[in-house]
Amino acid sequence: MIYLTLFLTFLEIGAVSFGGGYAMISMMRDKALLHGWLTEEQLLNVIAVAESTPGPIAVNMATFVGASEGGLLGSLCATLGVVLPSFLIILLIAAVLPGLLRKGGVRAALQGIRPCTVGLILATAITMLMRSLFGITAIGGGVSPDLVGILIFALLAAFAFLFARWKAKKPSPILIILISAGLGMLLY
């Protein structure tokens, strides 16, 4: 039953994604590829839409995947699933256990989870990079580099570097998405 699967999958994602939207991307990728909901390219498209529309990235991604798998009801189930753990945990902390996060054991667990989240994001980015730009999917699977893609990536990196020097801040995600869209139209 697709509605229950959507709800439970996003409930699981919502319950363990510490550290905001980007942390959720590795879980989303894992689940969406497993269930066959999205291909790697579709996943990247969804992230782009989630980044360039207002609101929390996690909610945007849940709504989009839910809608494409199960229409309006599907998107409601997925969104409810991703939000529910946060809502309940925060209520618990605000109402009953204001000291929960100051407990030594909880803090120690969070100290273990934080670097793990960073590792998951980095590994996900590197895997996506290897697949999309170099065509490497498995050991011994051969290499088929996408030269235009590599060029776009290099141009984006150069742009972000120059922008950071010039304005003393990072370019916004939307600006990066707009530039990469322009480069895609020109070069592909």
Binding site: G19, Y22, I25, E41, L44, N45, I47, A48, E51, R114, P115, T117, V118, I121, L122, T124, A125, I126, M128, L129, S132, L133, G149, I152, F153, L156, A157, A160, K170, P173, I176, I177, I179, S180, A181, G182, L183, G184, M185, L187, Y188
Partner: peptide
């Protein structure tokens, strides 16, 4: 044209995820 734009955007998104990861790495 939109499909071409999105091929570029896919690379932009990977770039964004990688830079977010690197930024968090620096803050660890």
């Amino acid at each position: 044209l939109v499909a071409k734009a999105f091929r570029g955007i896919q690379i932009g998104v990977i770039f964004l995820i990688l830079s977010a990861g690197i930024k968090m790495l620096r803050g660890t």
